[in-house]
Amino acid sequence: MRIGSLADAAGTTPRTVRHYHRLGLLSEPRRLSNGYREYTIDDVVRLMRIRWLAECGMPLGAIAAVLDGKATDEPDVVGDLRALLAGIETEQTALAHKHSRLSALLDDAVERRALTALPRDVAATFGSLLDAADERDRPALIRERDLLEVMAISGRVPAAFFETMSAALGDHDLRRKYLVLLRRFGALEGRSVAESEHDIDALADELVSVLDVESFAQAPESAALGSDSTGLLDIEDIVPDAAQRAVVLRTTTRLLDGAHPAGTSQ
């Protein structure tokens, strides 16, 4: 049997067969007087076993140990198999998550909604706010929406926070208050932290009163938005203005302090 016939029988290619020869997985067969390799049914069996184990995901180095008659409970083989299974389970979890997100995106696309990482209720609420907003409020609302989307994509914010945002913005009185706070937040731009200390502190307190401390109880303290970085972005990148950044830091710190009082653990 020539190498092409052997490869066809095992559903592979002559190049792969030669690769297995180089790795020592498949022994070189005897050569005929004309120089051609002559394979036998034993080579077919071994090659098909190699292909079967490789398609199961077993590393080629582990395949050699299994096929050469070493015990299959050998620590390296068992470790390889466990690692492969753990990797597949991780991939399955990631794929299920991607499937869920893509399904949601498909629903939004079919319904002609904006494609965004924000929860649907929050995105819809901001859409309504922007449709009804005065021109003076639109830039602040757009920036707020975009910042919330960054937070959603980072995965560092509990879902309950966005539920709270949606509920707050869905309440007429709270929505009006929130818009006023956004205007005050925008008015801080360009001012120094020192000269705005009173306004920064007051604004942080009022934002805490609008948001829900309990929604932050689901976030580990290590994931605090009030820390100096959020994922791969520094807080300076997200909120470049120093006075506005001070508001964000103080607000999130107070929310987290309320959710995780000193001396408590998750």
Rank of each mutant, 00 (worst) to 15 (best):
V193K: 01
L102D: 13
G35C: 12
V110D: 11
R51V: 13
R138L: 13
A94N: 11
I3V: 14
A62G: 12
D241W: 01
R120A: 13
A167P: 10
D257F: 02
A124M: 15
H21D: 01
D228M: 13
G127A: 12
E197A: 15
A202K: 14
A117Y: 07
L249C: 00
A168M: 09
R175F: 03
R245N: 08
S192V: 04
H97P: 07
R145N: 10
T72E: 12
A243M: 03
Y36N: 08
P14K: 14
L84Y: 01
V17R: 00
E111S: 14
D237E: 09
L84M: 03
E28T: 03
Q92S: 10
T253I: 10
G35W: 07
E89Q: 15
A109S: 14
R22D: 02
F161M: 04
R101Y: 11
A224Y: 02
A109V: 15
L81C: 13
R156I: 01
F126T: 11
A159N: 03
P261Y: 11
A217R: 08
E28P: 00
R51M: 10
A262T: 04
L182G: 07
A217N: 05
R143P: 03
I235Q: 06
E91H: 02
A9D: 04
A83P: 10
P59D: 05
E135I: 12
T264M: 10
F185M: 06
D42I: 02
R101H: 09
A124S: 14
A219W: 13
T252G: 00
D228K: 12
S222N: 02
H21P: 01
A65G: 07
G69R: 15
L102Q: 13
R250H: 04
A202T: 14
R120G: 11
G24N: 07
T90Q: 12
H198F: 13
S100W: 06
L47N: 01
H99S: 10
V45E: 02
E144P: 02
T116A: 05
G231I: 14
G79I: 11
A104D: 14
T252I: 02
S265D: 13
T125L: 06
A140G: 12
R145V: 08
V78P: 01
L85P: 04
A246D: 04
L255Y: 02
D241F: 02
E38T: 07
C56I: 04
L233Y: 10
W52C: 00
E206N: 15
V77I: 11
T125K: 08
R145Q: 13
V66R: 02
L105R: 03
R46P: 02
P158H: 06
T252R: 04
H19W: 00
R245V: 09
L225K: 00
G231E: 10
L211M: 15
L225N: 01
L147N: 06
V44R: 11
A71D: 14
G263H: 07
D76G: 02
A64N: 07
S209F: 06
V193L: 09
S196P: 04
E55N: 08
R37D: 00
G57I: 03
A104W: 04
D107K: 12
G61T: 05
